[in-house]
Computed example of a mutant assay.
Amino acid sequence: MSLRPARPEEAGSVTALVRAAFAPYVPAIGREPAPMNADHAALIAAGRVQVAAGGPGGALEGVVVTCAGDGALLLDTVAVAPAAQGRGLGRALVAAAEAEARARGLPTVRLYTIAAMTANLALYPRLG
């Protein structure tokens, strides 16, 4: 996986990927999760978005959004394109966030999820 900062012109693609990745959770939650409505252009401008590209034609396959503060790195969003799911990309995105925390000298990575996001609840404990 090659991870790089998202470029301003990719804001629409980032939003589309995040919306597609989170769409299956809408019925279980009863609303769109916050990442679906985030201002990805602003997040990209702030340097908070990394992307994994490598799909057909260089298409984005994964997105990770982070924010440093309060002595920890907040792992705000991890999203994998539906066509790229099941290949370990989500695990690699979380590992990239952990590496970012280490590089910034932050001892902790925090994240939030919703109980209805069962795949996340199964993955995150396995990652430690």
Rank of each mutant, 00 (worst) to 15 (best):
Asp76His: 12
Asp76Ser: 14
Asp76Ala: 15
Asp76Phe: 04
Thr77Leu: 05
Thr77Cys: 14
Thr77Ala: 11
Thr77Asp: 09
Val78Leu: 05
Val78His: 07
Ala79Lys: 01
Ala79Arg: 01
Ala79Cys: 08
Ala79Gln: 02
Ala79Asp: 02
Ala79Asn: 03
Val80Arg: 00
Val80Tyr: 01
Val80Glu: 04
Pro82Asn: 07
Pro82Met: 00
Pro82Thr: 01
Pro82Arg: 00
Ala83Phe: 11
Ala83Pro: 02
Ala84Ile: 04
Ala84Thr: 04
Ala84His: 06
Gln85Arg: 14
Gln85Phe: 01
Gln85His: 00
Gly86Thr: 09
Gly88Ile: 12
Gly88Ser: 05
Gly88Ala: 09
Gly88Thr: 14
Leu89Ala: 09
Leu89His: 04
Gly90Leu: 04
Arg91Cys: 04
Arg91Asp: 12
Arg91Val: 15
Arg91Trp: 13
Arg91Met: 08
Ala92Asn: 01
Ala92Cys: 08
Ala92Ile: 06
Ala92Arg: 13
Ala92Asp: 14
Ala92Leu: 14
Leu93Asp: 01
Leu93Pro: 00
Val94Trp: 02
Val94Ser: 08
Val94Leu: 04
Ala95Gln: 15
Ala95Thr: 13
Ala95Arg: 15
Ala96Asn: 12
Ala96His: 15
Ala96Val: 09
Ala96Leu: 12
Ala96Phe: 13
Ala97Cys: 08
Ala97Arg: 10
Ala97Asp: 03
Ala97Phe: 05
Glu98Met: 11
Glu98Tyr: 06
Ala99Pro: 07
Ala101Ser: 10
Ala101Val: 10
Ala101Pro: 05
Arg102Glu: 14
Ala103Cys: 02
Ala103Phe: 02
Ala103Arg: 13
Ala103Gln: 13
Ala103Glu: 13
Ala103Pro: 05
Arg104Tyr: 00
Arg104Pro: 10
Gly105Thr: 12
Leu106Val: 11
Leu106Ser: 08
Thr108Gln: 13
Thr108Trp: 07
Val109Cys: 12
Val109Thr: 12
Val109Arg: 07
Val109Ile: 09
Leu111Phe: 03
Leu111Gln: 07
Thr113Gln: 03
Thr113Ala: 09
Thr113Lys: 03
Thr113Ser: 14
Ile114Trp: 12
Ile114Gln: 15
Ala115Leu: 13
Ala115Asn: 06
Ala116Met: 08
Ala116Gly: 09
Met117Trp: 07
Thr118Ile: 10
Thr118Leu: 10
Thr118Val: 14
